[in-house]
Each structure stands twice: as C-alpha cells, then as structure tokens.
C-alpha cells in the first residue's frame, strides 16, 4: 500500500483537495482510504463517506495533536492494509506552524491557500519547508499576480518541492494531484522510520495541567520573551 501524509493549516482545503484526488483515482480503479487527525471534533469523516471514501477519525483531545499522530500512524497503516486500500491518506492539521507529521521516505504533501497572504509561506515551518509536494488552493478568487507571487514565495522556502494549484471547488488540478499521489512509494511498515523533523520541545507545568499564571507556577521547559 502507498501512504501519503497531507498537512496544512485549518481551512486551507485539505479535505476538499483529497476528495478531488480520490475521486479521480477511483475512476482509474485505485482504492483510497483516509485517516483524519483532528483535535476536538470534525465532520470530515461524514464528508468523505458521503463521497463514498472510507475514512476513520483520530481525535487528539487534550494531547498535542502531532504527538498523537506519531503515536498512532503505525496502527493506521495496519488498518489501511487490512482494509485493502491501494493508497492511504493521513490528513492532519498543522496547528502551531512548527510541527510536521511528515515522515522520511513517505510522500509528504502540504496544502496552503492563496488567501492566507504572501507572508504565510515564511511563517510555516517544516510542514511546508519539508514537503515533497505543495498544493496551493483557492486560486479561483485571487488575481493572477497574487497566485504567481504566492507560488514564488513557496518556492523560496522550499525550492525542491513540486508546487501545484488545485481547486477544491471546481476540481481543477485534482486529477493531476491524484496521478502524483498514486505514484508515491509503497510503505510496508513504519516501525523504526524517522520523522522528517523533531516535534517541538514541550513538558512544562502547563503540559501537566497547571492553570495558574505567574513565574512561581512555571516549571520545566519554559522560555521568556527578551524585552531588552
């Protein structure tokens, strides 16, 4: 089975883009399954199922969503194998702009939208900078100049990636994205594989349930803004 990780800021169009690619692949007889990682709640599983795409949801609740992702991805792979998929898409939101669920030698996709502004590519960390494929959405509502500048800014921070425009509403580019995903490497097992980059350091008193504000209540990995 082939595995791809798809990550991107909330509301950038990840689900719509995956649905477009999956529909195009289904027409070619490729069986696609989706595992959706989210934090609190998501209606996306129902959205996938309405389109006839088998999907499962993993909610991280009060755990760091990307840590939750890493702790579960091997089991997701097994589920995909048992379900007989040709392609499993692991979709997750990048919430702090620093995390990335991307795994070495597993096709990594980042979805970002033209509306998020030209400074956004610089603000997103490994999720964008280490992706193999960057999908830019919502191109139908901004000017040609903005599309070109935005794509250029993406190329500046990730010169090696394939950059393509996909429109989740009209489906433009969905077929082409499907072809690229179907060509991803086969993944047999993830045990022992490496994340492309370490998750951000955590573990301070607030990770452990502290709610009070003030230096006296801060322990562990704490960093302060330099006002000097």
């Amino acid at each position: 089975m082939r595995l791809v990780t798809v990550a991107g800021p909330p509301s950038s169009g990840k689900t719509a883009v995956i649905i477009r690619a999956a529909e195009a692949l289904r027409a070619d007889g490729v069986r696609v399954g989706v595992i959706k990682f989210d934090c609190l709640s998501t209606g996306d599983q129902a959205l996938y199922e309405r389109k006839g795409i088998t999907a499962r949801t993993g909610l991280s609740g009060n755990l760091c969503p990307d840590h939750f992702f890493v702790s579960n991805i091997q089991e997701c792979l097994q589920w995909g194998e048992q379900s007989g998929f040709d392609l499993l898409v692991a979709e997750s939101a990048g919430l702090c702009n620093r995390c990335a669920p991307h795994i070495k030698d597993v096709c990594a996709v980042c979805v970002i939208d033209n509306l998020s502004g030209v400074e956004t590519p610089r603000k997103i960390g490994p999720m964008l900078k280490m992706a193999d494929l960057v999908v830019i959405t919502k191109g139908d509502i901004v000017s040609q100049a903005e599309r070109e500048v935005f794509a250029h800014r993406v190329r500046q921070v990730n010169p090696g990636a394939v950059v393509m425009q996909v429109n989740g509403l009209t489906g433009q580019g969905g077929y082409e994205l499907g072809r690229l995903l179907a060509g991803a490497e086969e993944t047999v097992s993830l045990t022992g594989r490496l994340l492309r980059f370490s998750m951000p350091a955590a573990l301070c008193s607030y990770c452990l349930g502290q709610r009070k504000i003030g230096s006296d209540f801060q322990m562990g990995n704490v960093r302060k803004i330099d006002f000097s």
Binding site: L115, I141, V142, S143, Q144, E146, A151, V163
Partner: peptide, 16 residues
C-alpha cells in the same frame, strides 16, 4: 513554475 503555460483571469477574481 517558471514555465507555466496558462494564466487565468475571471470575473470572480479579486485582489486580497
């Protein structure tokens, strides 16, 4: 990206 063939201009497009 440097050799993209088609630019598009439509009614719905706005500057943002």
């Amino acid at each position: 990206l440097e050799q993209k063939l088609v630019a598009q201009l439509s009614q719905n497009m706005n500057f943002v």
